[in-house]
Design a binder for these strands. Structure first.
Lengths: 248, 248
DNA sequence: CACAATCGTGCAGAACCGTGCAAGACTCGG
DNA sequence: CCGAGTCTTGCACGGTTCTGCACGATTGTG
């Protein structure tokens, strides 16, 4: 029996029973417990299982690497994401902003979509790499800790050389009165720059953003192609429509 | 019996049983184990099977050597990460490469560390943002799907304007004979460029990289300040030390 | 606290590996 | 047909890796 075989057997027992008892497996395979223990030690070293007294258990649920903190996408954000997918045409060059709604959109993209997606957000880039086959261009710059988006001179310089078909913009406030607003002054500048270099700008705004206003202006509503939201019956959405804004 | 015949037989046994035992096949064919071993070695070199102690197994589904591992930082990588933390001095400007070992390092950094960390990897940037207070500079460029690292002209251009104190380099192979190697040709170029712009380069190499060689040369060992690894007693590490390489 | 199960470690024997070497088989030009 | 060169094969040797056992330490249990 080969070492690799034996280890595969250990892992399959683990998968089947949810645990491995060194003693039992040793008897099953006709080997000494020492050998099994050594295998378990090595497998634990590789992170494939978790060693415990008497045997082993499945590896600790490998602490979700990223976005553990980034709050999970709410149902509202997911609805917005699904609607916004339709805005991305095959072959287009798209700028996908940062933020949890954009992240939900990145995850909602069909795996087969062919497009080029530019993003200022490392977490969006990771999500895209994991779940889609699009070409991903990461903007460089200083990473803003709270919003997880790049900014600064380096980002501005790169943005100035970009030309995109669609910009999917995330903000923290959308209101008929205040327009589009966000909480970070520097993010606002980056978003404005991205909008200026894109043929169309669509706003991704989950329900709780509607009617809200934050500290820094991003753009007036007149400069965007429309807003993607949910919760049709929200009075503020009606106000936006009356003001001539397209709302999906 | 012709060599080609014999090898075809080995592969068919492998396909039938899922494994090949050198001893058994040698007896079956009436040949010495040496001959079989040589065949297995050559077939493994061609990537048609995977050599293991005692025989061979089907070639590893070389598919996703990166992403699958992204989630699990093995104990070895974590040890390397903890050792490497000492290389980052407060206030320094550090380039932290991509890869799982670098990711483990990002997570191992003390939350209070003050430093500027430049990285070509979105996942490293996310990890740094989540667990540390360092200033994070994300390099821009096309995100390489497998390695989760940026590359291309945009990245090269930015790197050319960087000047860092320390570069913590991740590779997939470190050997006294082949030097530092990695699996992606473009990543190799990016890593070289980063090394060229850093005062010191240290290699992060968890145990399984030691003695391994991949397809593309990154740097000769002479051009790095040292290698951070674990598994003190590895013979290849002794060889590296004899060759004058600093090993932590 | 006492007892049993389990663990880690050191050790020796066995299995396995790579390498060098020599004999034989094959190839190819003359 | 012949001989030089190359390739293949089996063997011998030294080194490495794996495995089971012994022993003392550690952990779990009543």
């Amino acid at each position: 029996m080969l070492t690799a075989e034996r280890r595969a057997h250990l892992l399959s027992v683990l998968a089947r029973d949810g645990k491995v008892l060194a003693k039992v497996v040793a008897a099953d395979l006709g080997l000494s417990e020492d050998t099994i223990r050594r295998d378990l030690r090595d497998l634990a070293e590789e992170g494939l299982l978790q060693r415990v007294y008497g045997g082993a258990l499945p590896a600790a649920p490998a602490a979700q690497p990223y976005l553990a903190r980034t709050t999970l996408a709410t149902a509202s954000k997911e609805r917005v994401a699904r609607t916004a997918v339709a805005l991305i045409e095959p072959g287009a060059t798209v700028v996908l902003d940062g933020g949890t709604t954009a992240l939900a959109l990145a995850r909602a993209l069909p795996a087969s979509l062919r497009a080029t997606i530019l993003t200022p957000s490392p977490s969006v880039a990771v999500a895209l790499a994991e779940t889609t086959a699009v070409e991903i261009v990461m903007l460089g710059g200083v990473v803003h800790r709270h919003s997880l988006v790049v900014g600064g001179a380096l980002a501005a310089e790169q943005i100035a050389r970009v030309r995109a078909d669609v910009f999917l913009l995330g903000v923290t406030g959308v209101s008929a009165a205040a327009g589009l607003t966000t909480g970070e002054v520097e993010d606002a500048a980056t978003k404005r720059a991205l909008a200026a270099r894109s043929a169309q700008t669509w706003v991704l705004a989950s329900a709780e953003k509607i009617g809200a206003a934050s500290a820094h202006d991003v753009l007036p509503l007149a400069e965007v192609a429309g807003v993607v939201s949910d919760g049709e019956d929200h009075p503020e959405l009606r106000a936006l429509r009356r003001a001539g804004v397209t709302v999906l």
